[in-house]
Simulated assay, not measured.
Amino acid sequence: MEQISSPITQQRAWVNINHQALRNNVQELKNFLTSNTQLMAVIKADAYGHGAIKVAETVLNAGVDYLAIATLTEGIELREAGINAPIMILGAINTADEVKEIVRYNLEPTLCTPSQAFVFAETLSCLNATLLVHLKLDTGMSRLGTHWHNAVDFVQYVQQFPQFQIKSIYSHLATADDINTSIMELQHSRFEEAISALKANGIKTPCLHLANSAGALSDRALHYDMVRIGLALYGVYPAPHLHQKVKLQATLEVKARITQIKTLLPNTGVSYGHTFVCDRLTKIAIVGIGYADGIPRLLSNKMKVIIRGQFVDQIGNITMDQLMLNITNFPDLEVGEIVTLLGKDEDLEISADDWANSIGTISWEILCSFKHRLPRINYHKKIDD
């Protein structure tokens, strides 16, 4: 396997991003989708911590049709990097200044309410500009969007303004990762009812989309004209029962180096609060990564890392910039050795799901937590440390 060495990988810690795995995941998902269903790649939050610009370039080259982000600044960043694909803003925009920037950067906003649409229309009229817009219906998420019962009134209100071209109508699923599909099916039926009402009132429906990663993998009936794929794009399954649907590859690894090794006497406490106390002569390694880099402090005394293809226990409270390992059973380890916190090393692997399950959170939060002071290494072959 290709060994990648750079000045960055000689530093204390970094994140590996496997772009070949990204390409694989795009192809797997496209092959799974129903015929003529487009794939929207959700690359908000810096592509779930993977680096939005590089991810955008890779997934577009792999055949993605649309990009989605959450905020105006995320869209501007992509445009200024030369990304010319259609970019949809999932979050709500409410001010005239933001509308002007949307026009300037040719972004496609989500309209959630008539009042928001009015602000857009007024501003666009002053600019003598038009916009492609996406209308969001709330079918049960109870977050952004107009209530599905009011779909006809909402669409008709937006249609009266010549400044708008409605590109799509969509909603978002609240429980698609649940093995109990009753709420998902209820939301699906509400979306169908809203679309039927639009057609009954003579409204030609544009592009329709409802499914996120979990919804897309759960039921092909949810695919419509497009699906919005986030988590699955990065090789993480939204729920255990969906693992057999497609073959995804994890795209992110977190690596760090041992910065010091020392031996502690019995009854010696380790790190803040002495939550770990040595019960014997203990050899420990200090690793240059901590919660300021995105390693959850709640993993303290719970997590394992991989060194030389073997699991090693983390001990003591994880600190802002460092964490400690019990390497008593590894007498020949040296300063500078690479530690795998997330990812594969030989036959062993630690996943975002492992961390999430250990501390009662979700893998989405784990992936999005890695801070920018951890450099990203982009590659197209698996690194064999």
Rank of each mutant, 00 (worst) to 15 (best):
T37D: 01
S168K: 14
I327H: 09
L107G: 03
I93C: 03
T340Q: 09
L233D: 02
I17F: 08
H188G: 02
F330T: 09
S5F: 14
K167I: 02
H149E: 05
G75H: 11
A92V: 13
T340R: 09
R376P: 01
D345T: 14
V312F: 02
Q10C: 05
C112I: 15
I53K: 12
L233C: 06
I169P: 00
N24D: 07
L231A: 06
A292I: 10
L127I: 14
I286H: 07
T113E: 03
Y157C: 02
A21W: 13
I366K: 11
E334W: 07
T181V: 11
Q27G: 00
Q165P: 01
H209W: 11
T139D: 05
G82I: 12
R297E: 03
E349T: 15
A211C: 05
I93R: 07
I229Q: 05
V64E: 01
L325M: 10
L217C: 01
T181I: 14
I102D: 02
P162M: 10
Q20R: 12
S358F: 04
E346Y: 14
K302M: 03
F154K: 10
L299E: 01
L265T: 15
F330N: 08
S115Q: 12
M184N: 08
V277I: 15
I169Q: 02
T123G: 00
L60I: 15
